[in-house]
Design a binder for these strands. Structure first.
Length: 357
DNA sequence: ATGCATGAGCT
DNA sequence: GCTCATGCATA
């Protein structure tokens, strides 16, 4: 509504950490196969079907959207081949959060992200993946990780219920093991899986709460599964858990974080209801009206759309709703050998009416 | 747990 | 300028 109050937004700054990742080169983790057993004790829930007006034909469907009841076995979601192995010599330190002690040069990170050094069985099937699985947020931060290994084979690997089941199981076990989400994230780098670095607490949290896109869930599952197995082992032969290294000063730069005031936020939400995808001019208009920076408004809408997709299921699940909808259109990737067949959906919006300017 | 932000790749 | 994966900062 009105922004008589102080400032519509406020920003704060805080520390930014430098690179602290390890993992590179060595990947002693043979792809393992599965874990059906590990998940056997979990129950599978039924998921209602639904549709998300925000979804567009070429959008990479989110985990939430996956729950449309429409089975999907398209290659687009099959990112992994197998699961991380657990049949290798166990190294307690792997699951022990040793804080940020790992160092990796930007170049190494880049390389680690690429599947370049991985053997064939570890590589992605380029024609079956989307950009994000090759080189997502490469320089976003000090942590690498992002998708490694091969594409998934079985449907079990991408089955939403399986993923959900695993996520729950994972969380329960993690807690049992007394490991925090942040610890898990850091420990991942120790798995030394090709292309796998550490992850943030945020991501682990989102994985557990299923607030990630389906592809993201699928990609992370084998990695977290691998960690869990090692962690379970560590639990057993617990003793020499050398939680070595540890301390690392956080003396660095800062990053601002805008805080949009409630009134402005309420208006933004109203605008969003009217049109989730405002034009640049529209955004400028809104920004001007709310006395916010245009970029802040733009990003807000981007995040809102992303959030809507992720949260969609949680908003409607556990409900009998069975609004069967038309078949979901998956991005068809032409494996033409070209080096740019990792399309990302951005086709024209064909959702519900009224969402265009 | 989640809001705001970044950056890659793509249109 | 968009989507997506992800992260820092913070409520």
């Amino acid at each position: 509504m009105q922004n008589t109050a102080p400032l519509p937004t406020t920003t704060t700054a805080s520390k930014m950490q430098p690179f602290n990742n390890s993992l590179f080169g060595s990947f002693d983790d043979p792809l393992l196969n599965a874990r059906a057993a590990a998940l056997a004790d979990i129950d599978v829930k039924n998921v209602p079907q639904l549709t998300n007006p925000l979804m567009r034909p070429h959008d990479m469907f989110s985990y939430s959207n996956y729950f449309t009841g429409i089975p999907d076995t398209s290659a687009a979601t099959n990112i992994y081949q197998g699961l991380p192995s657990s049949s290798e010599p166990f190294d307690a330190s792997v699951v022990v959060p040793t804080s940020s002690e790992d160092q990796m040069t930007p170049l190494q990170q880049v390389m680690a992200m690429q599947t370049y050094g991985a053997p064939p069985q570890f590589q992605y099937n380029m024609s079956h993946m989307t950009q994000h699985f090759t080189t997502s947020s490469l320089s976003t931060s000090n942590n690498i990780t992002r998708y490694p290994i091969a594409p998934p084979t079985s449907e079990l690997e991408t089955d939403p219920r399986q993923l959900e089941t695993f996520a729950e199981h994972f969380k329960q076990r993690r807690i049992k093991l007394g490991v925090t989400q942040a610890d898990v994230g850091k420990a991942l780098a120790h798995l030394k899986m090709p292309g796998v670095g550490s992850l943030s607490q945020s991501t682990i949290c989102r994985f557990e709460s299923l607030t990630l896109s389906h592809n993201n869930m699928v990609a992370l599952k084998p990695i977290l599964h691998s960690w869990l197995e090692k962690a379970e082992e560590a639990m057993k032969q617990k003793d020499t858990i050398g939680d070595i290294n540890g301390i690392l000063p956080n003396t660095d730069k800062k990053r601002k974080r805008t805080s949009i005031a409630a009134p402005e936020k309420r208006e933004l939400e109203q605008f969003f209801k009217q049109q989730p995808r405002p034009s640049g001019e529209r955004i400028a208009s809104i920004a001007d009206r709310l006395d916010l920076k245009k970029n802040v408004v733009r990003v807000w809408f981007c995040n809102q759309r992303q959030k809507q997709k992720r949260d969609f299921r949680s908003q409607f699940r556990a409900r009998s709703a069975a609004a069967v909808m038309g078949p979901r259109v998956m991005p068809v990737v032409a494996g033409n050998g070209s080096n740019n067949n990792l399309k990302q959906g951005q086709g024209p919006y064909n959702g519900l009416p009224g969402f265009f300017d």
